[in-house]
Amino acid sequence: MKELLRTNDPTVIAFVTALLTGEDIACFTMDVHMSIFEGSIGVLPRRMMVRRADLFQARAILRDNNVEFEG
């Protein structure tokens, strides 16, 4: 799995998940339960992961939908 993006905005995570699922790209959100350690204030970012084979297409989908990401 490769990191596609990192954000602490839950709406971006939901939007990207919907975009990728609609294109049959499997994705996985890591660090979801870190709020237990941070006190539920949303400071720590979550990572959206995709398979290495899907990374190029997933990045193209994010660019086409104006989702900012590093990489």
Rank of each mutant, 00 (worst) to 15 (best):
M1Q: 01
M1Y: 03
M1R: 06
E3M: 08
E3T: 14
E3V: 13
E3Y: 05
L4T: 02
L4F: 02
L4K: 00
L5Q: 04
L5I: 08
L5F: 06
R6T: 09
R6D: 02
R6A: 08
R6N: 01
T7W: 03
N8G: 08
N8H: 13
D9H: 08
T11K: 13
T11W: 12
T11Y: 13
V12Q: 05
I13S: 04
A14E: 13
A14P: 04
F15W: 04
F15T: 11
F15R: 12
V16G: 01
V16S: 04
V16P: 00
V16W: 03
T17P: 02
T17Y: 10
T17I: 13
A18H: 12
A18V: 13
L19W: 07
L19G: 01
L19I: 03
L20Q: 05
L20G: 03
T21V: 11
D24H: 15
I25E: 10
A26R: 10
C27S: 15
C27A: 14
F28A: 01
T29R: 13
T29Y: 06
M30S: 13
M30R: 14
V32K: 15
V32T: 13
H33K: 12
H33E: 14
M34R: 11
M34L: 14
M34G: 04
M34D: 11
S35Q: 14
S35A: 07
I36D: 12
F37V: 14
F37H: 12
F37D: 12
E38I: 08
E38V: 08
G39P: 02
G39M: 05
G39R: 00
G39N: 03
G39L: 09
G39T: 09
S40W: 13
I41G: 08
I41L: 09
G42V: 12
G42L: 03
V43L: 14
V43D: 10
L44E: 11
L44Q: 11
P45S: 11
P45C: 09
P45M: 10
P45G: 10
R46T: 07
R47F: 04
R47G: 02
M48H: 04
M48K: 01
M49Q: 09
M49K: 09
M49E: 03
V50Y: 00
V50H: 03
R51M: 04
R51G: 00
R51E: 07
R52T: 10
R52G: 00
R52N: 08
A53E: 15
A53V: 09
D54V: 00
D54I: 02
L55C: 07
L55A: 04
L55P: 00
F56P: 01
F56C: 04
F56Q: 08
Q57N: 02
Q57D: 02
A58W: 03
A58S: 08
A60F: 01
A60P: 00
A60E: 12
I61Q: 03
I61W: 00
L62W: 06
L62K: 03
R63E: 08
R63N: 05
D64Y: 03
D64I: 01
N65W: 01
N66L: 06
V67T: 01
E68I: 05
E68T: 07
F69N: 06
F69W: 03
E70T: 10
G71D: 13
G71I: 02
